[in-house]
């Protein structure tokens, strides 16, 4: 490709400076105590060129000397084991972040091609859905970023945001069939469309200004940079977003995975806030 990028008029070029305060707290209550609870949490802000972390702290309760490791995308995560009985598991983080840029240029640690591979959660069957038929041709678009933005618009026009109609493991195809879903489903659909057309796309789990929970959006790789697209709000990810985990799909980016050996009812209280605090 020889032509230079043609999106100087896009919002991405706008200054994305801003300072944000982030608070995230999850309290899981079990109806009977659990033990030998192995957990794995993504509570690290990615080492990124989108923003700079000015202050950061995190916690896990009950206390259990957590370890850290780095996943295949170079993202740090924590893991540990709570041996003794406990009926409350609580974790969270607080941070102050200065946003720098609206696209990422840092070289990836994995081959970019893995973000082209379809998987169970993002796979789409274009045939039966009229609005997807427009996307039938698998040709690679001339301007992949413009094309991806167009695909995002289509999703917003044809899908209804409705909680309770899908769950954490609903494939994109099912959400499309029923015409509704939440941010996770919208993101999976956009990823599925992009990958089918040769545009590398990845899933992002993080925070959006004003939301009381975590939020999910998409990044597409075009001409050596990652650009964020939010198909739930039909907008470009320029400011007001803080990513926490990136991966191929929602399963890759789940913030909390836990394993213990008894059957319990779990009640989770999640609070998340991201506010801009100015310069």
């Amino acid at each position: 490709m020889s032509s230079s990028p043609q999106f100087t008029d896009l919002e991405y070029e706008r200054s994305a400076d801003g300072v944000y305060k982030l608070n995230y707290d999850v309290r899981a209550e079990m109806d009977t105590p659990i033990r030998n609870h192995a957990w794995c949490l993504r509570l690290s802000l990615p080492d990124d060129d989108f923003f700079e972390v000015e202050h950061f702290s995190r916690y896990v309760e009950p206390e259990c000397s957590p370890s850290t490791a780095v996943d295949y995308l170079g993202q740090e995560y924590s893991y540990g084991l709570v041996r003794e009985d406990h009926s409350v598991f609580r974790y969270g983080l607080s941070a102050t972040i200065r946003q720098h840029s609206s696209y990422g240029r840092r070289p990836d640690t994995v081959p970019i091609q893995i973000f082209l591979r379809s998987d169970r959660l993002t796979e789409l069957d274009h045939k039966n859905i009229p609005w997807l038929a427009a996307f039938q041709s698998p040709d690679k678009p001339k301007d992949p970023l413009e094309w991806s933005i167009g695909a995002m618009h289509e999703i917003t026009q044809n899908m209804i945001y409705l909680t309770g109609t899908t769950n954490y493991s609903t494939p994109a195809g099912d959400a499309v069939s029923q015409g509704s879903g939440v941010c996770q489903d919208f993101a999976h659909i956009l990823i599925g469309l992009c990958r089918a057309h040769g545009v590398p796309a990845r899933y992002v789990n993080g925070f959006f200004v004003g939301e009381g929970e975590t939020h999910a959006w998409v990044e597409v790789f075009v001409q050596g940079r990652w650009y964020g697209l939010d198909p739930t709000h039909n907008r470009l990810v320029v400011q007001d977003y803080v990513p926490l985990a990136r991966g191929r799909n929602a399963e890759d980016c789940s913030l909390n995975r836990g394993v213990w050996s008894s059957v319990v009812q779990q009640h989770q209280r999640i609070s998340a806030s991201l506010v801009e605090v100015g310069e």
Partner: peptide
């Protein structure tokens, strides 16, 4: 050819760099 590696479900990014 790249396709034979990256398109193959048996190629696990999870162990990339391990």
């Amino acid at each position: 050819p790249e396709e034979f590696v990256f398109a193959c479900p048996a190629y696990l990014p999870e162990v990339y760099g391990v």
